[in-house]
């Protein structure tokens, strides 16, 4: 039986950049025991000789000709910004004090 402890959920939430309450961590951990058991069924048929499929189409690089086309103005690009300054996105501090 697969399961995920409260601490493991907390670690994943950290990786996914989601703050979580104690209540959320505990309830997710309980739900995951059931969900992981269900999804683990894929292992029953996923033998080594089966090639994986990541996409329904055979993907290839798509290029366009290198010509200038109209694009968003700085005002448009910044129109949804939570905060802006001097035609730039203003973001919270990204580096520590040191």
């Amino acid at each position: 039986m697969s399961s995920l402890s409260r601490d493991e959920v907390a670690k994943l939430a950290g990786l996914a950049r989601i703050e979580m309450s104690e209540e959320e961590l505990v309830s997710l951990s309980k739900e995951f025991t059931v969900i992981l058991d269900a999804v683990a069924r894929v292992q029953e048929v996923a033998s080594a000789d089966v090639a994986p499929t990541s996409h329904p189409l055979s993907l290839r690089n798509v290029f366009r000709t290198d010509v200038v086309v109209p694009s968003l103005s700085p005002e448009q690009a910044l129109s949804g910004a939570p905060a802006q300054e001097e035609q730039r996105f203003r973001v919270p501090q990204i580096l520590g004090e040191e």
């Binding site: 999804v39 894929v42 292992q43 994986p52 499929t53």
Partner: peptide, 15 residues
């Protein structure tokens, strides 16, 4: 491998 990788293999089998 156990989860995402296996799921991709199932995708092949379904196709």
């Amino acid at each position: 491998d156990a989860y995402y990788g296996s799921a991709q293999k199932v995708r092949t089998l379904i196709t």
